[in-house]
Simulated scan of single mutants.
Amino acid sequence: MRWWPIRRALAFALCAALAVPAAKAGPDYPPVLPGTVMRFPADGGAHPDFRTEWWYVTGWITDERGVERGFQVTFFRVRTGIGEDNPSRFAPRQLVLAHAAIADPAVGRLLHAERSERALDPLAGAATGATRVWIRDWQLEWAQDHYRSRVDAGSFAFDLRFDPSGPPVLNGDKGFSQKAGDAKHASHYYSRPQLAVSGSLRVDGATVPVKGRAWLDHEWSSELLPDGARGWDWIGINLHDGGSLMAFRMRDERGGSMWSSGTLRTAAGETRALRPAQVAFTPQRRWRSPRTGAEYAVEWDIDIDGRRLQLRPLLDDQELDSRRSTGAVYWEGAVRLFEAGREIGRGYLEMTGYAERLRM
């Protein structure tokens, strides 16, 4: 679940648009409406009329020596509202931004990189009709029956294939995912949990084969952050029994929950939407970033409809500073999920709005 600040993205677009006339008025972003039917593979592609959109893949991978690491690759599309009446293909009507990261315990912190470009084929873009989003040689693409992502960030690189184990999981009410009491604050949102990962990873100058499990989220929306919200906490967990758990809460200025929701899928493929009263996040151990001073709860107790679970990180320092692209500092990291002392799943935890309130 991601609702991103676009301050830096818009600054980038404004610089690019100095030589072209601005649009006469702001764009008419379409609302997210309940009852919208998702269709695949078409809805795996971009929805360029909406304000923001993102494709987000995270997972755990293991190399041939048994070394475990986490990885992340995220692509964002932003409709800027700039140059919409300008016929030039160089007008920055759409931006594409990307983050990539490796969580490596041997390094002790995230290795990460970011990119941002106006949508301009063949340099960068987000295709409609099926998943294909790219910035230069960074890409995520759907190819017949699987996804593939390639990233070369200099200090690390990966080329990974993701094979689905089942159909997309529609979050909320058949893909209508509410983020606040007012239903206008919502996104179209589906997940692809339990993706089988295969491919290669380059770290420390060596390229090694890897395999593992991953999770893909795809959301698009037109609304801004709800009034009074500072950020959110989100998890996407591949359960060891073959099921999956997504849960999030919107957080106010005092750290309290404004809204929460989730989706629990069983190993048999049965999906259950979780209401706000069925999802509770309670922070436990905290870690303070030596770079930004932000304090994050890196261990959590999570209650899912009376089921008490515990979340523990692969490593504490998984803070990602993306102020050169999306403008946000956030914690995005590989975690393990436990129940009664037994590990029952692995996935990712995202925490935003701790360094500063998200301005969107």
Rank of each mutant, 00 (worst) to 15 (best):
R2C: 13
P5A: 14
A9G: 13
L10W: 09
K24G: 14
G26A: 11
D28P: 02
Y29D: 00
P30Q: 03
P30F: 07
P34K: 09
G35T: 08
F40Q: 03
G44H: 13
A46T: 10
A46Q: 06
H47L: 02
P48M: 04
D49Y: 04
W54H: 14
V57C: 08
I61D: 01
R65T: 15
E68P: 00
E68Q: 11
G70D: 03
Q72E: 13
R79G: 12
T80Y: 01
E84T: 13
S88W: 07
R89V: 14
R89W: 13
P92S: 09
Q94N: 12
Q94V: 06
H99V: 04
V107R: 15
V107C: 04
L111G: 02
A119I: 06
A119H: 02
D121R: 12
P122H: 03
A126K: 07
W138N: 01
W138Q: 00
L140F: 10
A143T: 14
Q144R: 10
D145W: 04
H146C: 11
H146A: 15
Y147H: 11
Y147M: 10
S149T: 14
S149V: 06
V151W: 01
V151M: 05
A153Q: 06
G154L: 02
S155E: 11
F156C: 03
A157G: 10
L160Q: 02
L160A: 02
D163S: 12
S165A: 13
P167G: 08
P168M: 11
L170R: 15
K174R: 15
F176I: 06
S177M: 07
K179D: 00
Y190L: 12
S200G: 05
L201V: 04
L201R: 05
V203K: 01
V203S: 05
D204P: 02
G205C: 05
A206C: 04
P209R: 07
V210T: 07
K211A: 15
K211C: 10
R213P: 01
R213S: 13
A214T: 05
D217T: 07
E219L: 09
S221W: 00
S222R: 05
L225E: 01
P226I: 09
G228F: 02
G228P: 08
A229T: 12
R230G: 06
G231A: 09
W232I: 02
L239E: 04
G243H: 06
G243N: 10
L245R: 03
A247W: 09
F248S: 08
D252F: 10
E253M: 14
S257F: 00
S260N: 05
R265T: 15
A267G: 06
T271W: 00
L274Y: 12
P276G: 09
P276V: 06
A280W: 01
T282F: 12
P283K: 07
Y296A: 03
V298A: 03
V298S: 04
W300D: 13
I302V: 15
G306I: 06
G306L: 05
R308H: 15
R308L: 15
R312D: 13
L314S: 08
Q318P: 07
L320T: 09
D321H: 04
R323K: 09
A340D: 15
G341Q: 05
R342P: 01
G345W: 11
R346Y: 00
M351H: 08
M351N: 02
G353V: 10
E356W: 10
E356Y: 11
R359L: 10
